[in-house]
């Protein structure tokens, strides 16, 4: 029992980060029907930023907010350079465009930085544990859970209570009608990228605290996790994305603890397989957004 509670907390710690990434992907899918496979590049850029700032002698207190700002800037630049030009294009074109951005950014880092991973120090407290009863809680997991909660509540407030949030949701539900209400396409799409950048930035801080390294492919794993979580949640749905992220985190932790020794390296593969199976039987994801095709 205690073991299960422990695993659930671990899972929430993992899932929280996935939820933030998935939410960013869902926000962008909502306004422009694009699956952003380049979302991980925000993490890559953040990772190098952290590395350079560490090399300049700065600490996490300065680095964390900087990383968020950098992630936002990167998101806005990617939108401006690439995604703006394929708005409304066929799905095939948009999918390949986002993969193209993913590969191009990766190549830029290989070329101008290095193909190798660079290490930077992780904060000391992330290995601390608290013992409560039989539970040993990693401080890091708790920090992630709290930060995720705060970020999600902030996002919820933003979406529900501000005019920006209302216009973003309006654009996600019906883009043309939103334009008829006076919502500017460029502005609302840029806003969606800014929001996804903030969410990715927060996720990046924690992801990097745990991994402590920067490399051209640093964003691949978080991107896949985010996309998968968003897919589980049904892509268009924001609450679905959050649920998808948490589900993914829990499943992973439970799998790792239950897989026989020697196969733990297969966790990612098994998770991927499960999600592929989900898609075979429920192509719309767990949470279905109903769309009627007009003939």
């Amino acid at each position: 029992m205690i073991e299960l509670i422990q695993q659930i907390i671990d899972g929430l710690g993992r899932g929280g980060i996935y939820a933030l990434l998935a939410l960013g992907i869902a926000v962008i899918f909502g306004v422009m029907h694009l699956i952003n496979f380049a979302h991980g590049e925000l993490i890559t850029v953040s990772a190098y930023t952290s590395y350079w700032l560490f090399a300049s002698g700065l600490n996490w207190w300065f680095i964390a907010p900087t990383v968020i700002v950098v992630a936002v800037l990167t998101a806005v630049i990617i939108e401006f350079v690439a995604f703006r030009w394929v708005r409304g294009a066929p799905d095939f074109t948009m999918l390949m465009t986002s993969f193209g951005v993913h590969f191009l950014v990766q190549a830029l880092f290989v070329m101008y930085v290095s193909a190798n991973f660079r290490q930077f120090p992780r904060p000391g407290w992330i290995f601390d544990t608290w013992r409560i009863g039989g539970l040993s809680l990693e401080v890091f997991d708790l920090a992630v859970i709290v930060a995720t909660l705060v970020t999600l509540l902030g996002t919820y407030w933003l979406l529900q209570r501000t005019m920006f949030g209302v216009s973003l949701r309006a654009a996600a539900e019906d883009f043309d009608t939103a334009r008829l209400m006076g919502i500017r396409s460029n502005r609302v799409i840029r806003g969606a990228f800014v929001l996804s950048g903030v969410l990715a930035g927060v996720a990046a801080v924690f992801w990097l605290m745990r991994s402590g390294q920067a490399g051209p492919t640093a964003g691949l794993n978080p991107m896949l996790k985010g996309v998968l979580a968003a897919l589980i949640g049904g892509l268009g749905s924001l609450s679905g994305a959050v649920l998808g992220g948490i589900t993914l985190g829990l499943v992973e932790v439970l799998l790792i603890s239950r897989l026989p020794g020697g196969t733990a390296g297969l966790t990612d593969g098994i998770v991927f397989l499960l999600i592929a199976l989900l898609f075979v039987f429920r192509p719309q994801g767990l949470i279905t957004v109903r769309r009627v095709e007009r003939v």
């Binding site: 390949m96 191009l104 070329m111």
Partner: peptide, 13 residues
């Protein structure tokens, strides 16, 4: 690699 990524992106756009 830049050439490859750029070619893919450029052609899609």
């Amino acid at each position: 690699d830049i050439f490859l990524g750029g070619a893919m992106l450029g052609f899609m756009i």
